[in-house]
């Protein structure tokens, strides 16, 4: 089961530059929340605040609250937060110095699992959930670079799922993939939302419309409008949202 994530008045900056202004957004359990908006509006920064990855960048600061199932993640140990709130990046980033198996096992090992049989079992389960098992089961000990980009992205998903998170954040997970791999990922998201709460940043409005239950529109560091995906796309309340979703700018 996933857990709900809630951002309250989240602001973020790099040095003096304000990137996010008081964003409040509820991301409901076992639903897909899409975040859309023009480039540079702070979408990535926002979801990086959710798993406390933002604060690791030089000059990055944030304020506001992020609640995971009602508990503030900024009161927790950051490594524990990131363990519960997984993240998939816009470019597949498997560990290039590790085998496919070791990639999936990396998170488990970090958190102290040493038993080989259990590692193998969890890795297989994660690879199955990421819809990759059948493609790699015979070559688990090859380097991850032996896979295609789309497979690498699913490997990253498997790696993230292996440590049993409750929320999965995805930053344009299909933006560097071909249409077919994109389709596979989208089907996967559909599948995953039964078990996880999913937040996905996307540039692709059709993609948001296809996969998301809820959508939020960001502009210049502010959350302009949020609502069910259907509502946001068909009856936007704000003119800027309307302009964006109808392709008049951005």
């Amino acid at each position: 089961m996933g857990k709900a994530l809630e951002a309250r008045a989240v602001s973020a900056r790099f040095h003096e530059q304000v990137i996010l202004r008081e964003v409040t957004l509820h991301m409901p359990v076992n639903q897909v929340t899409a975040i859309i908006g023009p480039p540079g509006c702070g979408k990535s920064t926002f979801i990086r605040c959710l798993n406390r990855l933002h604060e690791t960048a030089p000059g990055a600061t944030m304020s506001g609250e992020v609640l995971l199932d009602g508990h503030s993640v900024y009161d927790m140990d950051p490594t524990e937060v990131r363990r519960s709130v997984a993240m998939i990046f816009h470019r597949p980033n498997p560990f290039p110095t590790m085998s496919i198996f070791d990639n999936v096992a990396a998170g488990l090992r970090l958190h102290g699992l040493r038993n080989r049989a259990k590692l193998a079992e969890s890795a297989e389960q994660a690879l199955r959930r990421a819809a990759l098992w059948d493609e790699v089961k015979d070559r688990l000990h090859l380097y991850s670079s032996a896979l295609s980009l789309g497979q690498q992205q699913r490997l990253c998903i498997a790696r993230a799922l292996a440590i049993e998170p409750v929320v999965v954040l995805m930053d344009e997970p299909a933006s560097s993939l071909d249409p077919l791999s994109t389709l596979v990922i989208e089907e996967l998201i559909e599948e995953l939302k039964r078990q996880y709460t999913i937040v996905i940043v996307t540039h692709n409005l059709q993609q948001a419309a296809r996969v998301a239950d809820k959508t939020a529109f960001f502009l210049d560091g502010e959350m302009i409008e949020q609502g069910t995906t259907t509502a946001l796309f068909t009856t936007p309340q704000d003119k800027r949202t309307a302009d964006y979703v109808t392709g008049r700018f951005g």
């Binding site: 140990d77 490594t79 524990e80 970090l110 958190h111 102290g112």
Partner: peptide, 12 residues
């Protein structure tokens, strides 16, 4: 119990 202690080890 082991997991908590392993967390401590990592922190240390």
């Amino acid at each position: 119990v082991t997991r908590v202690s392993y967390k401590t080890v990592r922190k240390l």
